[in-house]
């Protein structure tokens, strides 16, 4: 498993995950539009694509080619290792 911590250390990458949670299976075009309009992210399409490379390497995003198009899908399972490593503290009685 590549570094999940590095993947979520960046604000733009967290915004990408936020947008994919709201609507899964987006094209690069849709993600870039959402980042620009809702998060004031002015990164180039190429820069967003590189952020997606990092998320994909961490297993948090999958690229799926369907016909002529590539869609991006979120997979939050790698985040479970955070709570496995540092279990959530139980609330004091």
């Amino acid at each position: 498993m590549a570094d999940v911590f590095k993947a979520i250390s960046d604000e733009t990458r967290r915004a990408i995950l936020d947008e994919l949670i709201e609507r899964d299976e987006q094209t690069l075009f849709e993600l870039c539009s959402r980042l620009a309009m809702r998060h004031a992210v002015t990164s180039s399409r190429q820069a967003v694509s590189q952020h997606l490379d990092v998320l994909e390497a961490a297993g948090l995003v999958r690229r799926e080619k369907r016909g002529r198009y590539t869609f991006h899908t979120i997979d939050t399972r790698p985040l479970a290792q955070i709570a496995e490593r540092w279990p959530i503290t139980e609330a004091p009685q």
Binding site: L28, F29, R45, K65, R68, Y69
Partner: peptide, 8 residues
Amino acid sequence: DALAADGI
């Protein structure tokens, strides 16, 4: 093809 692949 390149435009369509990226959803543009």
